[in-house]
Design a protein around this nucleic acid. Sequence first.
DNA 1: CATCATTATGTCAATATTTATATATAATTT
DNA 2: AAATTATATATAAATATTGACATAATGATG
Lengths: 187, 187
Amino acid sequence: MNSLGYALLSMLVRKSCTGYELKQLLEVFWNAKHSQIYPLLSKLEEDEFVTYVHVEQTGKPDKKIYSITDKGRSLLQKWISNPPAPPVARDEFLIKAYAISLADVETGISLFQERLALYEEKLAKRKVEIGLMEKEYGEKLEDIKSNVFGRYILFKRKLLQEQEEINWCKWVLSYLEKEVKTNRIMS
Amino acid sequence: MNSLGYALLSMLVRKSCTGYELKQLLEVFWNAKHSQIYPLLSKLEEDEFVTYVHVEQTGKPDKKIYSITDKGRSLLQKWISNPPAPPVARDEFLIKAYAISLADVETGISLFQERLALYEEKLAKRKVEIGLMEKEYGEKLEDIKSNVFGRYILFKRKLLQEQEEINWCKWVLSYLEKEVKTNRIMS
DNA sequence: CATCATTATGTCAATATTTATATATAATTT
DNA sequence: AAATTATATATAAATATTGACATAATGATG
């Protein structure tokens, strides 16, 4: 089984979900398309790692609420203790940052300003999410046996990384903007 | 063309390389296998974005030194000013962190300790790399028009992110280790 | 003296992942 | 009234990526 399968199972540990809900929750890891999620859920169901109840809805299409089985839970538990695969991070922006000497300063600045804006937005949303969690769960968040602890620490990590990305963007921008000022004086 | 193609071109801007060297240099972005790099280099050569000179070697296998062409440089330049695709980060460890409530505390601790050790090693190497760059290039690193500026800022970013990962691991470990102590007192 | 790591290049089948397409309804916005 | 967005499920096609196979010389380690 691939990582996405385990990601689905880890989501279902906390709470039973439909494929649609899972797609949204999975965004904390990476953006998997529903066309990847639905077939995988079928496969997980076939292998008895999850089950579902068919819920009829009027007006909306029927939905399937998936739950993790004991077999699924023990598979996930076993998987956790194995050494994790090395992380993969593919970021086009970083390639552009690497080749920035090829671009003119204005292009470089707008590239970094947009990145900065993107991460400031991400950070703002993250703070709201964490705030809501703290309100809803309180001390439970710091209880390592609680099923929200994992979600909490993951969100905190995202927050830290987003904050650091912002710091870095500002640092790079200080170089780029210094150059613009120098040029303005000279012209 | 895919991001990896642009990554190769951005590497070749700084310096002409063999496929083998490119594989190693590319690790700053992500780990591409040579089975992806060699066919892609052939394709880039076919499309005239790169050229190569065949260099015969005694003792070692012959090699092909690839260089970027003007066509390749202008392609890359145009690509930089387009908005970058959203980053993809697939990290199995984070899924395990998310599902940590399922594991026993000892498993959780060793999971995070290994992550911590991995990133401390990465950080140490990064510091050496940056130190060498500073020694070799000095003030040139802060010149946005220098072809080492991109490499420098990328390395700095990696350093910051690695440092933050370490901080986070330590923060999580403080919770996990607190639990172990509590259990020890109770038993 | 044998085995392993490193340098160096390449192909190909099997997976993994993304994108496009399809169907259907409700609620909201223009 | 029409268009858009959100909910809900699913398959087919296209790309991207990995892992295994293949070759070959040198130097280092056991």
